[in-house]
Design a protein around this nucleic acid. Structure first.
Length: 456
RNA sequence: GUGGUUGUAGCUCAGCUGGUUAGAGCGCUGGAUUGUGGUUCCAGAGGUCGCCGGUUCGAACCCGGUCUUCCACCCCA
């Protein structure tokens, strides 16, 4: 008995239409990456475990897919360790490779390994799948694509300015109106924590603050209290809960709040430069919004933090994110190389474009004309015409078997092929083609050139 | 990792308080129709009721486990 096939949790098959639509997004992103001067690289699907482990925090380690060693790997494990059944201790003994979890850490590894061939600042882009052993839910899969662009070896804030423009350009190209590029700065967050006297609680403080739009002011206060942040400290950050106004207003408010924090002021100045510069350059469709509650993967960001929110009418998490990490390659022994980068969430962008009906029709355009097969001679006559049509870039094909008319017509119908050509003895003799418009049902006898003109 | 949810034909779903042979629509195959599709009519194929176990005279239905789907939390794209 044949077994019923299935695919692993959180993975997907993509049908022809889906692949066409995904390629449309990928090609749009890729084009802009290249226009902005980024170069493509690729890295392996799996890395040595030690390259990945410990780079994403405990939570991240848990979500990394580990690959079992080959061969008789258990025989090499010593009995004492085996009997203890401590997965954490046993894992490194039986698994030395793991699927990549993101593209940033492999990129850092790449920069360190290839530092002699790279000219800094190095701008690279990378579009490849990554894997996470997460529980799937809306817009979250265990295998998904990331589209990353990063620059290493430049501390200039012009890079941040460029990334804001890059986000704006790509989403404009995709016809997505109303996206918000949210921006914050790690130094501002540190500064706030410092000013309220909760510097040691920076992570807890920002994680709680990040949830403001989700759980509201009271929820955030509650969580901060639960994490041991003093009530009077929370009182001091109250202005942040209702941080309204233009970006310029927000900058002024932050300057007041952070006047005593050197680091905080540095962050504010960075934000101010980026905002002012973007103001004078202008954006196509996107809106740049200073959001002091934005924290994201705080672990390695040290300067700017970006997150792109889908248009408000779509209920979807972020469709992109990024930021600056001053010492990304430090973990691999290369000091003082600053990096900044952004990522596009392909799968989520797909869901958003689908929901808003923004895929152009041309994306899924298929065969334009099907030649009915009446037998060997007729097929050859048709194939000669098909060859010439294809040379003109017209998508044409011959039905492979001389099956019944009904079956062949039906095939054209179901694939919504707009034209059918019937060419039998009569047409061959007259050197003509009977071209039928499948939608209107009308058909006429035409020469090759007339047919070509209609199909172009 | 925590909590909930889902699974019956290729697809979408019915299936009563547990009771003979599990149904429909769509799709599929063939025919009415040997150079004309979409409409119509006729016929046919297709199911270990997710899987394993339990309760029962009897389970698609009740119970336990497991896998899967989707959702929320944690975290994140």
């Amino acid at each position: 008995m044949a077994q019923k096939p299935g695919i692993p949790k959180g993975t997907r098959d993509f049908n022809p239409e889906e692949v066409s639509k995904r390629n449309y997004i990928i090609n749009t992103i890729k084009k802009e990456f290249e226009v902005f001067g980024f170069l493509p690289i690729e890295t392996p699907s799996f890395e040595n475990s030690e390259t990945l482990m410990g780079k994403y925090g405990d939570e991240g380690d848990r979500l990394i897919f580990k690959i079992l060693n080959s061969g008789d790997f258990l025989s090499k494990v010593d009995d004492a360790l085996y009997v203890k059944k401590d997965s954490g201790a046993l894992t490194p003994k039986i698994s030395e490779k793991a699927l990549r979890y993101d593209l940033t850490v492999p990129f850092a590894r790449y920069v360190v390994m290839h530092q002699n061939e790279i000219d800094l600042p190095f701008k690279r882009y990378q579009i490849q799948p990554v894997w996470r052993a997460d529980r799937p839910q809306k817009g979250r899969f265990r295998e998904f694509y990331q589209c990353d662009a990063d620059v290493v070896g430049s501390k200039s804030l012009w890079q941040e300015v460029e990334f804001v423009q890059l986000y704006d350009k790509v989403f404009s190209d995709l016809g997505l109106k109303g996206v918000t590029i949210k921006m914050n700065n790690r130094k501002v967050l540190s500064g706030i924590a410092e000013v309220i006297g909760a510097k040691d609680k920076l992570i807890d403080f920002t994680v709680a603050l990040d949830k403001l739009d989700k759980i509201g002011e009271e929820g955030v206060k509650k969580e901060m209290l639960a994490k041991g942040i003093a009530a009077e400290a929370i009182e001091k950050v109250k202005p942040l809960f209702s941080f309204e106004g233009s970006n310029a207003d927000k900058i002024e408010k932050l300057k007041d709040l952070l006047s005593t924090s050197e680091e905080g002021m540095k962050g504010v100045n960075e934000l101010e430069f980026i905002i002012n510069t973007i103001d004078s350059l202008g954006l196509n469709e996107a809106k740049l919004d200073l959001d002091v509650t934005l924290a994201r993967g705080l672990n390695y960001y040290t300067g700017a933090i970006f997150e792109v929110a889908a248009p408000a009418e779509v209920k979807m998490g972020s469709i992109g994110g990024g930021g600056r990490y001053d010492d990304l390659t430090g973990i691999f022994g290369l000091k003082n190389v600053s990096g900044v980068g952004i990522s596009f969430g392909l799968d989520r962008i797909y869901l958003v474009l689908e929901e808003l009906g923004l895929f152009p029709e041309s994306v899924t355009e298929n065969t334009k004309v099907l030649f009915i097969n009446f037998g060997e001679n007729e097929a050859l006559y048709g194939m000669k015409a098909i060859k010439k049509l294809r040379k003109k870039g017209i998508k044409a094909e011959l039905y492979p078997d001389s099956s019944k008319m009904k079956k062949q017509m039906n095939y054209a119908n179901k694939r919504s092929i707009p034209f059918v050509v019937l060419a039998g003895d009569k047409e061959i003799e007259e050197e003509k083609f009977t071209l039928k418009n499948m939608q209107s049902g009308e058909q006429k006898s035409v020469s090759f050139d007339e047919m070509k003109d209609i199909l172009v």
